[in-house]
């Protein structure tokens, strides 16, 4: 049980980072932490103690196996996370070119 709670703690750390930090690079890192927390949680769901990979072979009976589906899904999710992070970093670089700062409180031309 404790590993699930630690996952939620990690998720909350990421959320705190996104909401409270002023530097946009730190916000991007916070998003990464959120993604990893969710991915970790997803993998842990499929975990069995002393389980092994569910590969079907002749004259082998696997009694205790790990659920492979969450691992496949997490791979997809990691790739999506990579795309989002790459896009965000690209935007952050462009923002730095335009505003000359990474401080979110100084990047405020839109209001209302």
């Amino acid at each position: 049980m404790s590993e699930y709670i630690l996952c939620f703690v990690l998720f909350c750390i990421g959320l705190y980072c996104v909401l409270r930090k002023r530097n946009i690079i730190k916000i991007i890192i916070g998003l990464g932490i959120i993604e990893y927390a969710v991915n970790l949680f997803f993998v842990l769901i499929g975990y069995r103690a002393h389980g092994r990979a569910p590969i079907l072979a002749k004259d082998q009976a696997i009694l205790n196996m790990v659920d492979p589906l969450p691992q496949a899904l997490v791979l997809t999710s990691i790739v999506i996370g990579l795309a989002v992070t790459a896009l965000l970093v690209a935007i952050a670089i462009r923002i730095y070119e335009k505003y000359g700062t990474f401080d979110i409180t100084k990047i405020r031309r839109l209001r209302g």
Partner: peptide, 26 residues
């Protein structure tokens, strides 16, 4: 400048939303 700022805001909020949805699916 404004478009990048809006996009950054949108992307951060959107990614947090996606994480919530993925957590729900998990």
């Amino acid at each position: 400048a404004e478009e990048l700022e809006a996009s950054f805001k949108y992307a951060v909020m959107g990614s947090v939303a996606s994480s919530f949805i993925l957590l729900g699916i998990a």
